[in-house]
Design a protein around this nucleic acid. Structure first.
Lengths: 197, 197
DNA sequence: GTCTATAGATTGATAGAC
DNA sequence: GTCTATCAATCTATAGAC
């Protein structure tokens, strides 16, 4: 059935890390849930840190690809929308892992070490690209805010019950919201008047 | 000089909790930094949990006041802007404490127990108010995104160097950005055209 | 590959002298 | 109020039999 024990361990670790936090999850608990002893985990992963890496690294790689691609992309509204869409895709397809970074930054930063610094560097580069060429401080601040808007994909479960939003709706609404924050929206925001549902 | 040892301990704990995370900070380290022994801390605080409470509780109280006040506030653009401003004020005046919640949610949630659930409840109420009466799912999603925009006050130091933004600029830019996300902005967003600096 | 057993370190917390 | 000394629990990680 479960041909790959190593993958089962990774899946259980992902679930526990994202629900309880990295430091709050012990190898004993992971082992119990998998149906092994603590010692057996060490046959598959050399340390708790390497287990976290296995959980987290694929997502970081995908993230790095997006940011690297922006280096060759001109900062046009269409391109910004495209990059925003790619970011949302990564978050949507890796909600659990991305949630670890969002809700447990303090816990994983120390363990990831330089890799964490790399990620922060990627975030800075993306924010800088969002801000556009020759940005004012207001532009840079809006770029930070736009990044936070994308993170709403992950926190929506905190503020709302269950899976209230579909993936398509999150993609549509949040990419529009990010463009609004960056003031690159094609459709101007309603001016003080609320449309009726 | 330091008339109040208890307050010194609280200040050191706040600094360490917000920089390294709650679980990653040991009482030994706090004691060292204060210039006391671990045991002496227990004369002033009965547990590590109670120390966290002392650090965090005043901010939660201020937060609760804002949310409670919205119960008697009609959802008009002016009122929304007012509430957004009050939220930004709380974050700006308590950057360190608020940063603990943002970057170490996994670490403090377990320790705060019911108090954490209360805070999540407050967040949900505020998001619901931001979404307005009879909201669509898109309205609710934008309300979540607007909350995230306010959190940009705290993450701006992660994405940018040092204190690049003044408090006034953060207040102005981010409250406008939040209104844009909620589509309650008085000034419509530029339509695809970037103004030059 | 999985197990039992244990090392080695750290932590939060307490007892009791001063 | 602060100290020394210590407890009990928990954790990551390793050694070695099967």
């Amino acid at each position: 059935m479960d041909g790959d024990t190593r993958e089962t361990i990774r899946a259980v670790a992902l679930e526990l890390f994202s629900n309880k936090g990295f430091e709050q999850t012990s190898l004993r608990e992971i082992a119990e849930r998998v149906g092994l002893t603590k010692a057996s985990l060490y046959y598959h992963y050399s340390s708790k840190q390497s287990l976290l890496l296995a959980v987290v690294e694929p997502v970081i790689t995908g993230w790095r690809t997006i940011v690297d691609d922006t280096a060759r992309l001109e900062h046009t509204p269409e391109n910004v929308r495209h990059v925003v869409g790619r970011c949302l895709d990564v978050f949507l397809r890796n909600r659990s892992v991305a949630g670890i970074f969002q809700r447990d930054a303090a816990g994983v930063a120390v363990v990831l070490g330089e890799l964490w610094d790399d990620m922060v560097g990627l975030g800075k580069r993306l924010v800088a690209w969002f801000a556009g060429p020759a940005p004012t401080t207001a532009d840079r601040l809006r770029a930070v805010a736009a990044m936070e808007v994308l993170g709403a994909v992950l926190s929506s479960t905190t503020y709302q019950d269950e899976d209230e939003f579909t993936e398509e709706e999150m993609r549509a609404v949040l990419s529009q919201a990010a463009m609004d924050v960056l003031r690159l929206s094609a459709e101007p925001a309603a001016s003080g008047v609320r449309r009726l549902g």
